[in-house]
Computed example of a mutant assay.
Amino acid sequence: MSPILLAEQVLNGLQSGVMLFLMAAGLTLIFGVMGLINLAHGSLYMIGAFAAAAVAGATGSFALALVAALAAAAAAGALIELLVIRRLYARDHLDQVLATFALILILSEGTRWLFGSFPLYLNMPAGLSGTVTLPGGIVYPVYRLALIAVGIAVALGLWWLNARTRLGIRIRAGENDREMIAALGVDISKLYTLVFAIGAALAGLAGALVGAIQSVQVGMGEPVLILAFVVIVIGGIGSIKGALIGALLVGLTDTLGGVLLPELFKLFTDPASAAATGSAFASMAIYVLMAGVLIWRPTGLFGART
């Protein structure tokens, strides 16, 4: 494999990782503060993608599409928290899983009823549709570089929110002792709704951004949700830094595994079977990574030790 191709795959892995981070950050924020297992998080990703595709198709503006994705996902998240999730905080995790799985079915069928069963397509902005030549002769799409930049900017914004603002203090306090901050006068119900809306907005943003490089269709959020759960297990539940590091590890492992493992198996088998065998092992690589991290550190890379 040429160095240029390897560098391109590394960039692809970074791009995949930062998009996974947007999903995983919201998921780990919700789980860390509320202790809630939210299987419907992938549906919020889907809602953001469909809202962006619909608004972009009606207005032709990608910027308005992103605003619509954030607003639709945040509004859907707040509504879900008020009507359904609020009744689940004191319930068993099995009840949470069953209720949020039911939400997946409701939101998927509702989206199909509203937009139809056929995929929608979201065009990327004209200014980001070309390629750029990077040092070393690497030709890479501008839009994918923009996705990496957006992911880094969101990570910095979340760090600032969590570490430098009064809301961040309340979120961190809510992770550690929700009864105490409620006793100090913080409206814990409003805090939970706000946190859930922020997490939903991040998922919707990820759906809108990825929707420009793949089709927007019903059920598109579930495969990403599985990877997001892998990310927060690797990074540590409740840790934004862990979500970022875990997402980058998963993105790079998944992308580079799909390229390098087939090449490795060519040394031992014929090229035809090497591609199939390498691809099969590549799909397992992220779960092997997760198992290795859990054996070494059961709470994840940045999870709190008990």
Rank of each mutant, 00 (worst) to 15 (best):
I148R: 01
I148K: 00
I148L: 11
I148P: 01
A149W: 12
A149G: 14
A149I: 14
A149E: 08
V150F: 11
G151I: 02
G151D: 05
I152M: 09
I152A: 12
V154T: 10
V154D: 02
V154L: 06
A155Y: 15
A155L: 14
L156M: 09
L156Q: 05
G157T: 12
L158Y: 06
L158W: 00
W159T: 10
L161V: 10
L161Q: 06
N162G: 10
A163I: 03
A163L: 04
A163G: 03
A163Y: 13
T165M: 15
T165N: 12
T165P: 11
R166Q: 03
R166T: 09
L167M: 13
L167Q: 07
L167R: 03
G168A: 05
G168I: 03
I169H: 12
I169E: 14
R170Y: 13
R170T: 13
I171F: 07
I171C: 08
R172Y: 10
A173P: 03
A173N: 01
G174N: 14
G174A: 15
E175Q: 15
E175F: 09
E175V: 15
N176D: 15
N176C: 06
D177L: 12
D177Y: 12
R178T: 11
E179G: 06
E179M: 14
M180S: 14
M180T: 15
I181A: 02
I181H: 09
I181K: 11
I181N: 07
I181R: 05
A182Q: 15
A182T: 08
A182D: 08
A183R: 12
A183G: 10
L184E: 04
L184A: 05
G185S: 12
V186H: 00
D187W: 02
D187S: 04
D187L: 04
I188L: 14
I188S: 05
K190Y: 13
L191E: 00
L191V: 03
Y192N: 13
T193A: 14
T193D: 10
L194E: 08
V195C: 12
V195A: 00
V195E: 06
F196E: 09
F196I: 08
F196K: 12
A197F: 07
A197G: 11
A197T: 04
I198H: 00
I198V: 14
I198C: 05
G199E: 11
A201I: 01
L202Y: 02
A203D: 07
G204K: 09
G204M: 12
G204T: 04
G204R: 07
G204F: 11
L205P: 01
A206I: 04
A206S: 15
G207D: 13
A208I: 04
A208L: 03
A208M: 01
A208Y: 00
L209I: 10
L209S: 08
L209V: 15
V210H: 08
G211M: 02
A212M: 12
A212Y: 08
A212Q: 01
